[in-house]
Nucleic acid binder design. Sequence first.
DNA 1: CTGAAAGCGCTTACAG
DNA 2: CTGAAAGCGCTTACAG
Lengths: 329, 329
Amino acid sequence: MSATIKDVARLAGVSKSTVSRVLSNSGKYSQEAKEKVMQAAKELNYTSNAIARAMVTKQTGNIGFLIHHRHEPVLSHPFYSQLLSAVVETATVYNHGVLVFTDRDIQKCIENFQAQRVDGVILASRMTRDILERFSAANIPVVLVNHSVKVENASYVKNDDYGGAYDAVYYLLKQGHRRIGLICDPDERQRYEAYRQALHHHGVAYDEALVYFTDAKVEQGKQGARYFLGQSRLPSAIFAANDMTAIGVIKELKANGIQVPHDVSVVGFDDIEFASLYEPALTTVKVDKTLIGELAVRQLLRHINSESRNEDLGEEITLPASLVVREST
Amino acid sequence: MSATIKDVARLAGVSKSTVSRVLSNSGKYSQEAKEKVMQAAKELNYTSNAIARAMVTKQTGNIGFLIHHRHEPVLSHPFYSQLLSAVVETATVYNHGVLVFTDRDIQKCIENFQAQRVDGVILASRMTRDILERFSAANIPVVLVNHSVKVENASYVKNDDYGGAYDAVYYLLKQGHRRIGLICDPDERQRYEAYRQALHHHGVAYDEALVYFTDAKVEQGKQGARYFLGQSRLPSAIFAANDMTAIGVIKELKANGIQVPHDVSVVGFDDIEFASLYEPALTTVKVDKTLIGELAVRQLLRHINSESRNEDLGEEITLPASLVVREST
DNA sequence: CTGAAAGCGCTTACAG
DNA sequence: CTGAAAGCGCTTACAG
């Protein structure tokens, strides 16, 4: 179908070896050879075959992106779509493609990545230790995003969840709030801990009844709001540790005639694009999804390009999170 | 590194051919051979090498997803992220990976797709005819999403933009509106035409001053609102032919003390997740992004799997669009 | 039903 | 600087 290196060689009157050298710009070749090859390649409309190259170099030039959340696809979640967008753009800059899989069956995803021989993968979902070990066994470099299961020789790019959450709660405290509700994904330990500590440091007793664990979705936020609505006394502020949840909370409160921020203050987490668009605009913890994505691929590429030495390249980058005060508090 | 078919063959005491047959479940093999091979494969932790297979079968099992918009990445736009999500999920079901590229340089993307030998690609962006012809020349099947440049042997999955937009304007007309503004991406010819026709069919003169062409973004929506605000008389309704634009319009109107829908009605287009979350919840034209994504990969797979015959498989699927009336009108 | 052999399109030592 | 040859890990006729 499409021309191969062999066709080019024949037309240029040189060997395949020479063609390969000039096309990949490696090794030595004469200016004359180069011209003939280039000319022939253009004439034949030659495009390189990454598959065949990968066969020998063991590098496909593709990185994998894996995402799932409790067996549900979340690729369209604003947080992840922005992350993926940054990943794809950065990878493209470095001439890498990104291969995406989401599947309820995570084992199948791993197999696919292995079969496709990706050079490395970015894990954007919560993974268990044994899953990480499979990657390690398969000798596939990984970098984990916003993740805390430690495993050797993996890199981490994360947001300062603890700091961000602490700031959020501290801010609420400073505003005079003492009854502060928390709605949090049970996997977000850092945010939960920060909430506890901030309270503790400021002499506010921790009240279990003020904490509601649930998924990071709008509907779950509504549920959380209902949970608080069911209590004899409403918290004066709610830290919904995710913007989608925060929006659900506000909507449900409004539906029950409760004004935000007049009656209850709400702060979210993530600063998705919609946070500033919503009304009231969300006070939230800003997470730099674009930078996270960018650093994740950079870090991964570093692993990939230094496979030779078996040193532990595991590095951990934590990006600062900052509170953005808007209208919901 | 990882075990190959050869290792499995040795351990199982059969030939590579036999291993290949049982592993890919093709051709004939005895039950006995199967057991030995399976056992050996498991023991060695064998995973197939899709690259090597692609080398001979000429099928990588990957499809490409290309997106860009006037040289800007839009992967994180809610419309496209939902589309991609559906594409990835559907592809996964059919055991295909999806390789994503976004680049300002679209030629480079095409080269990458060719080099990676994707089996086909889904084009989610506006493409010019010559770009489509490159795919055709490279013999890569394509399916275009929401796209109108016709090219032979390509399939189209689109939304009934014309019908949806017509319904939206008709609805506004029925509500008694006569001065209806339009804010529209210049590439969305169908929406524009539907606007004109609906007006025409109902005896309302077309007024060029009521039409503002711009990009489908929040900021551009604000600009559009300002444009109308600058006129001596505000339209009584604005059809912002994209939800992001519609939100921008509403925000800007509000900022100027104008109530939606009390003073001005606004209808959007797309029904992104945020449309129903925003306040006022957007009246908009619902586009089934998930179904579009699903049908696009199904259609593409059909092309891929019937490459033998050279018949024109170009098919065009148009999905109905329906108006969803909420609070902004 | 099974195995030996060729071949997919490249890259990379190895000689020259 | 250049070419012949081996080999990457598979699949697929072809014999048997």
